[in-house]
């Protein structure tokens, strides 16, 4: 699984890098950034999912090998 943030949607609530600091980090202005463009390590997938589900702007997309889905809450 990979993860992306839509920069047009992100307004910097900062939940992703608080909930999953090993997947996301903040940039200088507080917007979320994906730390590593490659596949998310297995032990970090749950954190990435939680962050995607919690994003108030639905700006985080989880990309799996078979399907692409913008995460829904929980």
């Amino acid at each position: 699984m990979r993860v992306t943030i839509d920069r047009d949607l992100c307004v910097g609530h900062g939940l992703c890098y608080m909930l999953a600091p090993d997947v996301f980090h903040d940039d200088d202005e507080g917007y979320g950034q994906v730390t590593d463009d490659g596949p998310v390590a297995a032990d970090r997938v749950e954190g990435a999912r939680r962050a995607a589900g919690s994003c108030p702007e639905r700006a985080i997309t989880l990309i799996t090998a078979t399907a692409t889905a913008t995460a829904t809450a929980d």
């Binding site: 307004v11 910097g12 609530h13 900062g14 903040d26 200088d28 202005e29 507080g30 917007y31 702007e57």
Partner: peptide, 16 residues
């Protein structure tokens, strides 16, 4: 709303 949020959020970010 998003316009205001974009403008304001950087001032309230953890780094700021």
């Amino acid at each position: 709303h998003a316009r205001y949020r974009h403008i304001l959020q950087p001032f309230f970010s953890p780094r700021s």
